[in-house]
Amino acid sequence: MTKIELTVDGAAVSDDVEPRMLLVQYLREKLGKTGTVIGCDTSNCGACTVHLDGTSVKSCNVLAVQASGRTVTTIEGLADTAEGDLHPVQEAFRECHGLQCGFCTPGMVMQAVDLLGENPNPTEEEVRLGMEGNLCRCTGYHNIVKSVLHAAETQGAKA
């Protein structure tokens, strides 16, 4: 067991974990952050995407011990949802019907937030390329791309 200490969605947490435990398993099994999900075992699907020190990573491809001393943001910490707040990207996914079953959605939203952080005014092609690490089986991506572009517009309007 290895002791880890990190910040997850704004809260300091500490645990003893097996070194082999993946960050996504730590989030789900130890912290109950089940909003982040596991969709594959080859790091293709991106459903487990979270932010590690502010950039998007696939949390199935990071060991929990590697996150020690760092800051993790999951879909559950993106906005103060207890207050009914939504992040503009979450709002855009709802507005543009950018989800159906919702399983890929946390990863999609987290990657979209990262993408827009790096490129606040992307073209459709830039969105399509920027989201290439996230698989969806329901939407055909049409409305996901629309959601990200819509979020860029509304964020731009607020800025």
């Binding site: 789900r28 952050k33 089940t34 909003g35 982040t36 999900v37 596991i38 999951t74 879909i75 559950e76 993106l78 906005a79 949802t81 939504l86 979450q90 996914f93 709802r94 989800l99 919702g102 399983f103 959605t105 946390p106 939203v109």
Partner: peptide, 14 residues
Amino acid sequence: DQRLITGRTRWTDN
């Protein structure tokens, strides 16, 4: 969508 976009979900594995 409100639940699904905020991660307040109940997948069987949860």
